Simulated scan of single mutants.
Amino acid sequence: MSARLVVLASGVGTTLQAVLDACRDPSFGAEVVAVGTDRFGTGAQERAVAAGIPVFTVRLEDFPRRETFDEATAERIATCDPDLLVLAGYMKILGKQVIGRFRTVNTHPSLLPAFPGAHAIRDALAHGVKVSGVTVHWVDEGVDTGPILAQAAVDVEASDTEETLRSRIQAVERVLYVQTIGRIVRSEEGT
């Protein structure tokens, strides 16, 4: 039996696509049952629709308070009965209404605990680090503070811009994230 994944994404959906591609192989042990977004018109939505995956959108601006947004997001996720919530470039911080209800995994473009937050690549370059990378971690109520599941280093080149470093990190990130999700879902099959 495959684990049920709900993927939340905000952008073009390259990480989502890597997960969708992995799920095509039955030995991966998971299937994406829904994709959620926080805005309309994203590449992630287009990729999900092209793959025949149901899409839902819950927008923060449609709610009077952050708590009601988180409650609505949690309720929408719950209708999909996920075994694992996967954040794939989802650019909203989720509250306890979601995190306390669903086991959630995320990927972040730095070697946490260094450079948490939305500008990790820019921050790494500004600090002049020689090595950056990617971290896959469980999500808790902090910002990029959950227990680390996997990390991979990416060298920072002297000529790197934010865009070039992001591109190299994302290439490593997609592989590491898919491997980690696969390990999580397959280890649970045996329990």
Rank of each mutant, 00 (worst) to 15 (best):
L85N: 02
A44V: 12
R65M: 11
F63H: 15
I53H: 09
R47D: 05
D81Y: 05
R39M: 07
R59D: 10
T57W: 06
F69S: 00
G13N: 03
T15M: 09
Q17C: 06
E75F: 08
V58H: 09
G11E: 03
D62P: 02
D70N: 15
T15I: 10
P82T: 07
G52T: 13
F56M: 10
D21F: 01
C80F: 15
D21H: 04
E71G: 05
E75H: 13
D25Q: 07
T37N: 12
G11Q: 00
G13Q: 04
R24A: 08
A48Q: 07
V86S: 02
L85M: 06
V86L: 03
E46D: 13
A50S: 15
D25G: 01
L87D: 04
V32R: 06
D21P: 01
G36S: 05
Q17R: 14
T68I: 12
E71I: 12
L60K: 14
G11K: 00
F63L: 05
V12Y: 08
R24S: 05
P82W: 10
V35M: 01
F63T: 04
V33Q: 04
D83V: 09
G52P: 11
E67T: 13
A44L: 11
V55K: 12
I53N: 04
Q17Y: 11
T79E: 15
T73G: 00
G13D: 03
E46C: 02
L84W: 12
D83N: 12
V19N: 08
R66Y: 15
V32C: 04
E71W: 05
R76Y: 08
A72W: 15
E67V: 14
V86A: 02
S10W: 10
R59T: 10
A50H: 10
C80R: 13
G41R: 04
A34W: 08
E46T: 15
E67P: 08
T57A: 15
R65L: 12
S10T: 11
Q45L: 10
G43L: 12
E71M: 09
T79H: 14
T68R: 15
A22I: 02
A34Y: 08
G29R: 13
D38Q: 08
T14A: 06
P82K: 02
A50W: 05
V35T: 00
E75M: 11
Q45N: 07
V33I: 06
R24Q: 13
A72V: 12
F63V: 05
A18T: 03
G11Y: 01
T14Y: 09
V86F: 08
G11V: 03
L16K: 02
E71P: 04
L20P: 01
P26E: 03
T42N: 08
P54G: 05
E71T: 14
E71K: 13
G13F: 06
L84H: 04
T68C: 04
E71Q: 15
G36F: 10
D81G: 04
Q45A: 15
G52I: 13
E31F: 01
P82R: 05
D83K: 09
A51V: 09
R47V: 07
L20K: 03
T57R: 10
